[in-house]
Design a protein around this nucleic acid. Structure first.
Lengths: 330, 330
DNA sequence: ACAGTTTCTGCAAAGGTTTGCAGACTCTCC
DNA sequence: GGAGAGTCTGCAAACCTTTGCAGAAACTGT
């Protein structure tokens, strides 16, 4: 059925070894022969069987990427960046969605290991033991999670929130709420850390609420809680929650930004589409996905010599000021 | 490095064949032996190498899914449904994003064929020749595209738009605009078809504008065009465009729904989060993804006997009435 | 205890590719 | 024209499984 290297060899009147070399080490075969082979391959529509190749080289040419929730626009964006970058290096990508379940996340990674050369784990919620096990069984890079000894691309959440608080302080806010995200999310920890220093730095009192699930519905729920806490601004863990807040405030006839300022995080597409348009911290998602692939590929190329060991790449964030923030009512 | 079936065999003191059978045809090996093997495998952390298995069985245990644009929330939703369903059957899924490029779409499918047992192509924009070629080189199922001889799951767009027009007619609209989507999209053709019959059926005059790209920005652009065409309601090809329309109308101080009704298509999460909340036709995306996987798996199990040949599964759509539609101003 | 079944198990080939090794060319230079 | 070096090419083993075939073990019934 399928056309193999043998078919090509026969048609080009050479041995399979030569065909193989014509593809993988072109300069080892005489140009004339090579061209002949390439032509034959082309005519037959030959594509090397990567599984067979992988069997012997130990490389699959595949990458895995696991995300906590595909329904959160943050992740498709990361994935699409990663997939595009992987494609440039002729890698295919496996995708898995853990549904925010740390156990499933570990299991998915484990299930992938044999089929991929490495995996990118986004916003991992695994505990450190599972993470260590995963690191041992395949080469992986984390995105938005930090762990000693494992390479990662990190988005500077702490600075992002600093920018947000600076912005609110400049507008005159003195007391605001932070709607906390998943407890075991590195991003959330970073944001809380950044929050504390920014709070001191700009003299803004911050009340932390939550943790909440990083979804729209939690924003609806959190809005009322925030309202009860006597603040003039709300910073949400992510845009999905911020949109929930906006929605609930609208229902309760609280005008944004006149009576309450709202800041999100991620700058998902929706943030620029709602009314009022959401002030938010932009996360370089596509770029992050690309960077993660680069890092992974480096890691694979570098072989087993952990020179430089746990590389980490930090990418910047940027506050996007839109219409959901304004000076507090006096 | 990696633990193979040989290691397990050695430890369990049996031959590799027996180990293999213990996994793939458990009832062919004596229970005592089987348990011994399973224990050994467990202790060693053995996982069969799917590539090697695939080499001999001709099955990879992988599925491919290609989408035109991961940034459109419609597709992550389909993908997540598909991925979940695939996982139940112990299949892993490859993901590829064609960026709305028909040529790239064909190329991606081709690149996948050797690594997957079949592929799901969502909202394919390929021309029929490429599609035929693809069908020949792998088993595939289409989602939201119909082609003779190839199995597909289809969402009933025509009926969806009928519901939308019926709704608008009931509200008293007599003339409305349809913002057309990609020319070579089956969904778009269906919607236009449904539109014509609904237009007659309910006595609503429809002016067709476009085609537009199925993205937010095109909605901004289309809004002005629609405004110039003297209609009281706008039906957009999808929610992304509808949100663009909403946005632009807001900028131009046209109140929705008082001065203009807007209907979208897809019911992406955002549709319920914006203000005013968008009246839209819900597409069963997750269910569609699941159904596509089922169909594909059936197809694979069915072998080469094309009994029933091109199966098609049609799934229903449902108008979700929210706040963006109202009777026209008199 | 023995022949005849039935149930388990092992051997070895196969699947498509890569790669070390060695043999076969081609070329250069004397 | 022939030796020597360099460049290409082919053979065969290897990667990890599955599976047809046949032999071994465990039964059954007498």
């Amino acid at each position: 059925m399928a056309v193999t290297i043998h078919d090509v060899a026969r048609r080009a009147q050479v041995s399979v070894s030569t065909v193989s070399r014509a593809f993988t080490m072109p300069d080892l075969v005489r140009p004339a022969t090579r061209e002949q082979i390439l032509r034959a391959a082309d005519e037959l529509g030959y594509r090397p069987n990567r599984a067979a190749r992988g069997l012997i080289t130990g490389k699959t040419g595949n990458l895995g990427i696991v995300v906590p929730d595909l329904q959160n626009p943050f992740f498709p964006s990361v994935v699409s960046g990663a997939q595009a970058q992987a494609r440039l290096a002729d890698y295919a990508v496996f995708l898995a969605d853990s549904g925010e379940d740390p156990r499933l996340e570990a299991e998915l990674i484990h299930a992938m290991t044999k089929q991929v050369d490495g995996v990118i784990v986004c916003s991992s919620r695994m505990d450190v033991d599972d993470l260590r096990r995963a690191t041992e069984s395949t080469t992986l890079v984390l995105l938005n999670r930090k762990n000693p000894g494992v390479p990662a691309v990190l988005m500077d959440s702490a600075d992002g929130i600093r920018q947000a608080i600076e912005h609110l302080a400049a507008l005159g806010h003195r007391r605001c709420a932070f709607l906390s995200g998943p407890r075991n999310s590195w991003s959330n920890k970073e944001r809380r850390r950044g929050l504390r220093t920014a709070s001191r730095l700009y003299g803004v009192e911050v009340v932390e609420l939550g943790p909440f699930a990083p979804v729209f519905e939690a924003g609806l729920q959190a809005a009322d809680i925030a309202l009860a806490s006597n603040v003039t601004a709300i910073v949400a863990f992510n845009d999905l929650m911020a949109l929930g807040v906006l929605n609930r405030l609208n229902d309760r006839k609280i005008r944004v930004p006149e009576e309450m300022s709202v800041v999100g995080f991620d700058d998902i597409a929706m943030a620029g589409m709602c009314t009022p348009q959401l002030t938010t911290v932009e996360m370089p998602t596509q770029q992050g996905g690309r960077a993660a692939v680069d890092l992974l590929l480096d890691q694979l190329a570098g072989g087993d010599d952990d020179r430089g060991a746990a590389q980490q790449r930090m990418v910047g964030t940027q506050l996007i000021v839109r219409a959901s923030t304004a000076p507090p009512r006096t």
